[in-house]
């Protein structure tokens, strides 16, 4: 009984340590710098979407036959 309890305890401790050691971008997040990455990507996305909207409107004009 005692032995099995000890094993479970050991297992729990090792898994907690293992999960704590898995390297994640914690420092990046605590510095708040992950938001810089998000901002850059959001900018790129906004740019791509703006470009798509621009093309879409241009094609709409072409379809109405105003450009040619």
């Amino acid at each position: 009984m005692n032995k099995s309890l000890a094993t479970i305890f050991l297992l729990l401790i090792t898994t907690t340590i293992a999960s704590a050691q898995t390297e994640m971008a914690d420092t990046l997040r605590s510095n708040g710098k992950i938001y810089v990455v998000v901002m850059v990507l959001a900018t790129i996305f906004a740019g791509i979407f703006a470009y798509l909207v621009y093309i879409d409107r241009k094609i709409s004009r072409l379809e109405k036959g105003k450009d040619n």
């Binding site: 293992a18 999960s19 898995t22 994640m24 998000v38 990507l41 959001a42």
Partner: peptide, 17 residues
């Protein structure tokens, strides 16, 4: 794009972020 970077993900070895 925003949630993909800020939402929690499981901590896995090798894969990491």
């Amino acid at each position: 794009v925003v949630g993909g970077f800020l939402m929690p993900v499981p901590r896995l070895d090798i894969l990491n972020e």
